[in-house]
């Protein structure tokens, strides 16, 4: 049972959290201006790297707030968590 450090509540058990997929995929400014393919990329296409990945998480059984995290998908290790209004960290 991993601990995940909620930026608002501190470390809590992983069962309190839910996963929200890739982070930094903003809703397009003007979806109507996108081609079908561009829109499909927004709706369906997500990265699936092995290694460090910027992800969205939600402390669903706690403060119910969303945050972002850099997690290593191979080791499951959370390398850092950050608030939604923090800039995307540079992933080495």
């Amino acid at each position: 049972m991993q601990l995940i450090a909620c930026p608002w509540c501190g470390p809590r058990e992983e069962v309190e959290f839910s996963y929200g997929g890739q982070a930094h995929v903003p809703y397009p400014d003007d979806p109507g201006a996108l081609s079908d393919e561009e829109w499909a990329h927004y709706v369906f296409f997500r990265a699936n790297p092995k290694g460090r990945f910027a992800e969205r998480w939600k402390h669903s059984a706690g403060c119910r707030r969303w945050f972002n995290a850099i997690r290593d998908t191979a080791t499951y290790r959370f390398e850092r968590v950050y608030r939604l209004d923090d800039p995307k960290p540079v992933i080495p």
């Binding site: 929200g20 903003p26 809703y27 969205r56 669903s60 119910r64 707030r65 939604l84």
Partner: peptide, 11 residues
């Protein structure tokens, strides 16, 4: 409720 929160918080 989660759906509303998700959009309100993240977008």
């Amino acid at each position: 409720l989660d759906w509303m929160e998700e959009w309100a918080q993240t977008e």
